[in-house]
């Protein structure tokens, strides 16, 4: 009798254990099983690799010496790390000089853009005024149409004003008037965000005697910190990366010797500046001085390095802000 009970109990225990393992592998309603976790992490790691691969490639290539480039066994890890490529790239791009010019050209319009777009977004979100629908329509239209159609007439405006002289003027004027690079998107982000700010909060402040300006600066703006972080980062990135409009506003003939420049423009012209730079450095150009992939990659790394630093510094705020920024356009 006892034996039978024992057998039954054993069977029950075994069954129980089986269930437990099955649960661990396949998961249950409450918890993902091992297989599920495996799939999720495998996907994440594979996709992460796809995303990071070009960056890793860039960095590893840029540290390779000439012999490593030709050696197929040194596909990934350089046999000896050399900073020679960076020296060449720095000379080619006139790096420190160009970097300063680029920072000036990116930071100033970014600040103007954030300030103006926030105010405009607030104006659309908070107030009702006649013609608002029409202006919102224009806003959407400006967002959708490719800016290439207006780029040439805008260029002519600045040319008539004699402002295409390699200075910051066209960038500053457009960003102050809410027409900077992708300003429309910034305005839409701020619009969505300010829309979420409870109207009652602002009205309460106004009842307490705060004026419209004060209500904006004291209440709406501090509540929009998340949007400010997102827009600042994006604007900086856009100003840093844009080449077509930058070339337009700086003027076709402007070089880094005569006016402002950006690292992306320098990267575009890398090949030519390397060739001309080398003929002036060395009286005889030997084949070993010719440009190679490692030098090009070093130039690319240098061009995006400031963005990476900026991103890593701001990333915590950025990732948190994204959660709250409501850039979902609802």
């Amino acid at each position: 009798m006892n034996a039978v009970i024992g057998k039954e109990r054993n069977a029950a225990v075994r069954q129980n254990r089986k269930e437990k393992w099955k649960k661990r592998f396949l998961g249950s309603a409450e918890k993902r099983g091992w297989i599920g976790s495996f799939v999720v992490y495998a996907l994440l790691i594979v996709i992460s690799f796809i995303f990071v691969y070009p960056v890793l490639y860039m960095i590893s290539r840029s540290l390779m010496s000439r012999s490593d480039l030709l050696d197929s066994s040194a596909m990934w890890i350089p046999s000896s790390i050399t900073l020679h490529n960076y020296e060449s790239a720095i000379l080619t791009m006139d790096y420190w000089n160009s970097l300063l010019k680029n920072l000036y050209l990116a930071v100033v319009p970014t600040v103007a853009q954030v300030l103006i777009c926030s105010a405009v977004g607030y104006g659309f979100a908070r107030y009702n005024f006649p013609g608002k629908k029409i202006w919102m329509g224009v806003l959407i239209l400006a967002f959708l149409l490719p800016s290439q159609t207006t780029a040439l007439p805008n260029y002519l405006i600045f040319q008539n004003l004699r402002m295409i002289d390699g200075t910051i003027k066209p960038f500053l004027i457009t960003s102050i008037l809410g027409q900077g690079f992708k300003s429309t998107l910034c305005i839409l982000i701020f619009y969505n965000f300010h829309k979420q700010t409870p109207q009652s909060l602002i009205e309460a402040a106004e009842i307490d005697g705060a004026g419209h300006i004060k209500a904006y600066f004291r209440i709406a703006l501090p509540l929009a910190t998340a949007a400010i972080v997102v827009v600042t980062l994006f604007s900086f990135v856009w100003y840093w990366n844009e080449t077509y409009l930058v070339r337009n506003y700086l003027g076709y003939g402007t070089t880094r010797a005569t006016g402002l420049t950006t690292l992306m423009l320098e990267l575009n012209a890398f090949e030519d500046s390397y060739a001309s730079a080398y003929t002036t450095w060395a009286s005889s150009v030997t084949s070993s001085d010719r440009i190679n992939d490692a030098i090009r990659m070093a130039g690319t790394v240098l061009a995006i390095a400031p963005l990476m630093i900026f991103y890593f510094v701001l990333q915590k705020q950025f990732v948190e802000s994204v959660d709250r920024a409501g850039i979902t356009g609802e």
Binding site: V120, L139, I157, T174, L177, I187
Partner: peptide
Amino acid sequence: WGWGYLFVAPWIVGVSIFFLRSMVQS
């Protein structure tokens, strides 16, 4: 209305010059 337009004013000036006018010109 006045306050609304005041906040939006820079953009309206900008969009009139650099978007609407430029569209017509192009």
